[in-house]
């Protein structure tokens, strides 16, 4: 019960070296999830690699072409407050702003959050809808993976042993609006269901959270929506495709059945809200 040895590397390379050498090492990002699990006896890491001293993992940079890089150690508070995340990137900012509560947002980081991947968490659908890429590094290599491929299954990601999340990249986004809508029992709870919607050209990208093992995205549904966002029948058809593709479970937050019924309703509401926003702008 004495717990892990904590190492606090100053550089990414030093951190990756520890991960390469120590098979039972885990990264300590904000602690919001890992320490809670340790307190509950659900995680007993041998070595903890604290990432908070590594400057290259922090902060949000926006390139001239509109690409965004969010360092893995960027706190939810910082992401939620960064108004440069606008238009098609607003979905990520909005997701950050509804995670847990202000105190936890001072601790939690995007890298830590997605590495743990709770399918009911807020970032996964937002990043999938934003077509984000996850940057992963190990002592041997660095690679990038589309968010859709990063989230593999319930609580499972594509992170390999020795690897860690170093950054999240967002492609340039247009000025068209995006939205993240979360339905939860109480403020700060994990979602019963959530929906991230990014208008894209004449169509939209949609990802649904908490309704299956991974954020739900349907190419077929998006194809139906293309050019027909204002068409109720098209939206209904896309919604039906999404709902059919969902694989929700019953849990203390809601039944699988309810979640399936929510998907079309959330989609319709989000689309009409975004179309109103676009019109107003």
């Amino acid at each position: 019960m004495t717990g892990p040895r904590l190492v606090r590397p100053a550089t990414l390379d030093a951190a990756l070296a520890v991960l390469a050498e120590e098979p039972d090492a885990r990264c300590l990002a904000g602690g919001a999830t890992l320490v809670a699990m340790m307190n509950a006896g659900l995680a007993e890491p041998g070595v903890l690699v604290a990432l908070d001293g590594i400057a290259e993992l922090r902060g949000i940079t926006v390139a001239d072409d509109g690409r965004v890089r969010i360092g893995a150690m960027t706190r939810h508070r910082e992401t939620a407050a960064d108004m440069r995340l606008a238009g098609g990137h607003a979905v990520v900012r909005q997701a950050a702003s509804v995670i847990a509560n202000a105190v936890v947002r001072n601790m939690g980081t995007m890298g830590g959050s997605i590495a743990f991947f709770d399918p009911a968490a807020d970032y996964p659908p937002a990043l999938v809808a934003a077509d984000a890429e996850i940057e992963l590094a190990s002592a041997a290599a660095t690679r990038r993976l589309a968010a859709r491929e990063f989230f593999v299954d319930w609580y499972t990601t594509a992170i390999e042993p020795g690897e860690m999340v170093t950054a999240i990249h967002l492609p340039p986004a247009g000025t068209q609006p995006s939205i993240y809508r979360k339905h939860a029992r109480t403020s700060g709870d994990y979602a019963i269901a959530s929906l991230a919607l990014v208008l894209d050209g004449a169509g939209a990208r949609v990802a649904v959270g908490a309704c299956g093992p991974v954020p739900l995205r349907s190419d077929a549904a998006e194809a139906v929506l293309a050019g027909r966002l204002a068409d109720h029948d098209a939206v209904a058809e896309a919604a039906a495709l999404l709902a059919a593709a969902a694989d929700p479970v019953d849990d203390v937050r809601g039944s699988a059945d309810y979640r399936r019924r929510l998907i079309p309703r959330l989609l319709q509401a989000a689309i009409s809200e975004l179309l109103d926003t676009r019109e107003a702008a």
């Binding site: 029992r185 109480t186 709870d189 994990y190 203390v252």
Partner: peptide, 16 residues
Amino acid sequence: LANPSLMDYKVPTSRD
């Protein structure tokens, strides 16, 4: 008991 924690058993916050 399936939800013996404040994560799974929710009480109202100041926002609720």
